[in-house]
Design a protein around this nucleic acid. Sequence first.
DNA 1: ATCCTTATGTATCTTTTGATACCGTTCTAT
DNA 2: ATAGAACGGTATCAAAAGATACATAAGGAT
Lengths: 209, 209
Amino acid sequence: MDNFHLLFSKLTHFKEAALKEELFAQAKFLSFNKGDVIVKEGQYVRFLPIVLSGAIRVFQQNAEREFSLYHVKSGETCTMSLAAAYFNNKSVSNGIVIEPTDVLVFPAAFITEWQLKYPSWNQFIITMFRKRYDEMINTFKGVVFEHINVRVLELLQRKVVENKSNTLLFSHQMIANELGTTRVVISRILKQLEKEKKVKLFRGYIEII
Amino acid sequence: MDNFHLLFSKLTHFKEAALKEELFAQAKFLSFNKGDVIVKEGQYVRFLPIVLSGAIRVFQQNAEREFSLYHVKSGETCTMSLAAAYFNNKSVSNGIVIEPTDVLVFPAAFITEWQLKYPSWNQFIITMFRKRYDEMINTFKGVVFEHINVRVLELLQRKVVENKSNTLLFSHQMIANELGTTRVVISRILKQLEKEKKVKLFRGYIEII
DNA sequence: ATCCTTATGTATCTTTTGATACCGTTCTAT
DNA sequence: ATAGAACGGTATCAAAAGATACATAAGGAT
């Protein structure tokens, strides 16, 4: 299978032959490693990324803490970049690669152009906005209405489904960064969950029961 | 000034003459009173609202609490409705009118159709998505990184700017509902702010100093 | 005037979360 | 092998927020 078909086997949203050709013609392929910074809050965004494989974590931070807004996975784009790139504006969030990741990037100008020309591109954009809204509102609800212990357990259960595995390669610090709290708090809660026979703790990973 | 021009004096985003005509042809005018429910979480959304005057509060709730995501004001639309209406899906939030409000509503089908035909409509849609993201992320940051006393003061200061007045007609309960906490907590914090000479408290309103 | 609702003030107690500190263990790089 | 970093456990104390209860006052309706 050549690159063209490999690419579109992962990007099933796009229907129009002309769109596919344009996508292929304009795309730059980029590969990133774990820890690479894609964008920092305050930086200008001039390119729209679409993830082919791997994952990017989009998060907010202050001096002591971080919390995740969402993860961008295969076939998805980052609506924060989209909203910024469209107006040649600054990013309001940070994006960092959390596993080896292949990305396509497109110059921002095409976002609008293709929206007007290709219904499936437009649908892709709106679908992404919708998906991120849903994710953010759920996170929001968690933060406002739930205690951290509940949020930790829900996060773990969600990841079990996503990863199709009961063993999650998370350090306590990573969980703290997802949820906007500190490592000590997470360790305390995980220990309690272990007492309740809901998880088993190991160095560098957690088993959900 | 006839209705047509009155309408578009408030909706300055829309440039194309043909779009204006279509908007006018397809729109239904609706008037709401304070307290009217526009949409409830879980309801299907089949129409896109654009506010002409007044304001709609979009919020989440559980058994005991509420918190606001954003307010939809003159010239704006609700991106939550947009995302839902586009896919003929259910609303993930609640919308309630907080002052007498005039609204235009359009059948959902036109959202896409006009996006493909009219660049200024498309820009309007993306602008709204961007604006709501910014608002939600700021709220988000507040919830995760700031204590409630800071969030209360920031809310009041923001409203002073928005309303162009140092006197805000807010009850303590309203502030609690904005921020996702309880009346008692807000009363306690406001009293503290009063001691610090940052506000003056009255029945039914607050003066910001 | 009387009753009812809404708004606010405040005290008390509990729970949750945060901050700090210190420890031992495991892994990695040299 | 050894040093240093990353990881996790836990104790102690402080602060923030929540829950509950009760009181007073203002405003509206009849």
